[in-house]
Design a protein around this nucleic acid. Sequence first.
DNA 1: TCTCGCTGTAACTGTGTCGGTTACACCTAA
DNA 2: TTAGGTGTAACCGACACAGTTACAGCGAGA
Lengths: 145, 145
Amino acid sequence: MAANSRLTVAVHVLVWMALVRGRGRDVVTSEQIADSVNTNPVVIRRCLGELRRAGLVDVRHGAGAGWRLIREPESIPLSEVRRAVETEPLFGLHRGEPNQRCPIGAGIRPALEQVYGEVEEAARRALESTSIADVLRETLAPGER
Amino acid sequence: MAANSRLTVAVHVLVWMALVRGRGRDVVTSEQIADSVNTNPVVIRRCLGELRRAGLVDVRHGAGAGWRLIREPESIPLSEVRRAVETEPLFGLHRGEPNQRCPIGAGIRPALEQVYGEVEEAARRALESTSIADVLRETLAPGER
DNA sequence: TCTCGCTGTAACTGTGTCGGTTACACCTAA
DNA sequence: TTAGGTGTAACCGACACAGTTACAGCGAGA
């Protein structure tokens, strides 16, 4: 399958909010964000809903409604964004139960879970070392370190 | 999405082959492996075909046909198995092109590629530290270290 | 109190992947 | 020559995801 783009969209949303907040606009609409991501506002609202549940943004209703970033971009590591929008593990186990009368089928799943857990942890650490503010900086000034 | 199980199936196949080779059977059929994984022989053959292209197994045709492990289980890290059977990256970029007239849309993809590259490398290193022989050991004797 | 703009969510569609299955031509040791 | 297993195409159903339409709900401000 084409790897899914949920993390990419969520990071794009947050980076965009961090940018315009730096310009004084604090409340933005899903339509404005959708224009930058080049997708449908409902897709953005679905994503923002998950980010809200994770405590990264909040929403205001009524006239002048919209979304607001409620955490400092420096304090949002991508690992937290991933946790907010991604539920599936990187690697899946068997779809069906393997043959329990075979010593491999009976014992391989815990062995794989252990390895996959180490991989998840390594990926989490790698994502943790980059923040939304880092991505914003790199986006606006590529290669400057 | 339900995370795909290609890596799991490929590791199961190789671990099973390592087990039975230790018992003196060197040539095995897709049907025998399918019985342990509890799936269809064609699924196993598709997987074995990719492992063959990667140089991990080879195939014999004709009567008494079947597959043979041609590398030492100790020398096959899971990172190599993943490379053999998995083509998609862990995280995908935007499906459509983001808005190039927005500074974020115009610059975010290289920034994300850099981060995602670091994550891929971290995952690769984590998989590299475990071999097929390690998984076999852990499968047969869980927790013994 | 009414209006207006935007949210929240359900529902549906199109597309793509994946595992599973059938079918069959091909190969070669015995 | 035969028998057993491979290699691969073709098709299916299940499922995830992005995209889209539609509409009820909310509340700041007139």
